[in-house]
Design a protein around this nucleic acid. Sequence first.
DNA 1: TTGATAATGAAAATCATTTTCAATATAATA
DNA 2: TATTATATTGAAAATGATTTTCATTATCAA
Lengths: 161, 161
Amino acid sequence: MRNRMCGPWWENRLNDAGFRLTNPRELVMSILRNTDKHLSAEDVYVKALAVNPSIGLTTVYRSLDLFTQIGVVQRFDFGDGKARYELNRNPLSKGHHHHLVCMRCKSIIDYNDFMQEEVELMKKTEKALSKKHHFKIMHHTIHFYGLCNECQHAEQKMIDY
Amino acid sequence: MRNRMCGPWWENRLNDAGFRLTNPRELVMSILRNTDKHLSAEDVYVKALAVNPSIGLTTVYRSLDLFTQIGVVQRFDFGDGKARYELNRNPLSKGHHHHLVCMRCKSIIDYNDFMQEEVELMKKTEKALSKKHHFKIMHHTIHFYGLCNECQHAEQKMIDY
DNA sequence: TTGATAATGAAAATCATTTTCAATATAATA
DNA sequence: TATTATATTGAAAATGATTTTCATTATCAA
């Protein structure tokens, strides 16, 4: 009995795509819903274990991949060797943000200042690029790479001998 | 005898940072200079072997890392499990571009249409973010993720059964 | 030329992610 | 509700990119 339209939107999305709603998947989703951090698969796994000690790391990976496939979750690579996952929030919504990535300590700062203008431009660019390159755009990332406050000073010391 | 200011700019950058100019490093750099592709470490290694059959993959990794550290090269993660490297070109210069990444076949399209406006905004945003978050921004990435022309059709078939 | 030390290459080690496969859970149907 | 087909799971093994180790070699300033 598909498409009963009773659960949260992502459950319907799962159903519509022909996937089953399972405990591990609910658990993974609840973890993502209750954080504002950029969790790695391992991070999610550790949190999941606290609730369901029999869950497997493999299942966490598979759930995150699945959610990414159906567009419920967005996967990020910040360059520290492991993927990060975030609930996919609507651009222009409160939760949407972009990232500042410290190249030295790998810390990540979210920002959503100046987003109005940025998002406007992105929408415009998306439209034009879609048409020109026949590319169906699902989402975008904007990352600024550099040095955070602390690392600028640490770096300074290094360069100064 | 440092800072002789005779070689290309990146050689001086190496010197200034206290690193040596070596054959493997020159080779890696020449490979990056002579491509417009997004090469992985392995890709660079294979090309390097053709010139210097005794070069090691490890050295290629180390060279790419080093160049990335000193800002000569930019490292990208498109989400296919291996890092890609590109010569770091000046925004607003001819070579600067952003990326469309196909989530299905992992192909990458470079674009530099509509860049003027985009880069203007990025500069403005960079300035504001630097001030507000005390973050020293070195470079940025803009990736649009979606489906390329071919994969839209392939995907379509899949969904349509 | 030489001496200090930075860089190299081969092999081994790491570590995130994927695959395999037998066991289990799910949802539609009888 | 019981049945059945099949999607999902978890453990262990496999994979594959990147890093580390360490003995050897190359570079640069004196």
